Simulated assay, not measured.
Amino acid sequence: MPQTPGLRERKKAATRKALSDSALELFLERGYDRVTVAEIARRAETAVTTLFTYFPGGKEALVLGDGAEREASLTAAVRERPEGTPVLEALRGFLAGRGVLDRDRDPEHRRRTDLVLSTPALRAYARTLWTGCEDALTRVLAEETGRSPEDTSLRVLARFVLETPDLAGASPDPLGTLDTVFRHLALGWPELAASRMMKT
């Protein structure tokens, strides 16, 4: 029946949300290290096997996801930027709307971000998710500049960009840190900071 896939996807989304919400509640109540996946599954009224089906990365993934959305959004920020917008400006704008850099965080997002920043395992996992986007960002930078994905300069740029969220998270002035990073990146890659670098 045509409606079956839609219903199935809605049920999957509801299960994912229940697990993620339960994990966040328990972590905030008792601390990340004092909560087991069995307790999270029990709070969400599901099985541990179901938890790992939806979140193979375990406890960290329950808070931060698996990186797929992050990578897709990051590359889209470059590919779908407005005509005439410099690549570096598009990347800075994207990062400014994520995590601790997002000034418009709602209360739940703020609690989640604060939990990540105060929990070494979560912060390390978040950094891994960002740096895991290196290949994808290097490829899209190559597409936008007409250069080879093997160009070491582009990989260096991708790596610097993807370390920025972790640097900003450790700073008392996250947005100031973001601006400082991108000022330096503009000096190293001026062709990607210029408005004449348009989409092709």
Score class of each variant (00 low, 15 high):
T53H: 10
K17E: 13
V140D: 10
K59E: 13
P82G: 09
T75R: 15
P56M: 13
A38T: 13
A158C: 09
D173N: 11
S73Q: 02
P2G: 12
T15G: 00
G57Q: 12
R127A: 13
L141N: 10
G31A: 03
S153G: 15
P5N: 10
T75N: 12
T49A: 14
R42M: 00
R70N: 12
A90W: 06
D21A: 10
R10K: 14
K12W: 06
R10F: 13
R159Y: 09
E45Y: 00
S118Y: 03
P190Y: 05
T200F: 03
L185E: 01
A96D: 11
T152F: 14
E108S: 11
G65K: 12
R70L: 15
K17W: 03
P120Q: 06
G31W: 05
V48W: 01
P174W: 07
V181I: 15
G67E: 10
P120I: 08
T131N: 05
F27V: 01
R105S: 08
R159T: 11
R70H: 15
K199R: 15
E134R: 09
R112T: 03
L154R: 05
T36W: 08
L51F: 14
F182A: 04
A121E: 13
P5I: 11
A121N: 05
R196E: 08
G146R: 11
R111L: 14
A124Y: 00
A96F: 03
F52N: 07
D173Y: 00
R139E: 12
L115S: 11
V78W: 06
E89D: 10
V35F: 09
T46L: 01
G31D: 04
V116T: 14
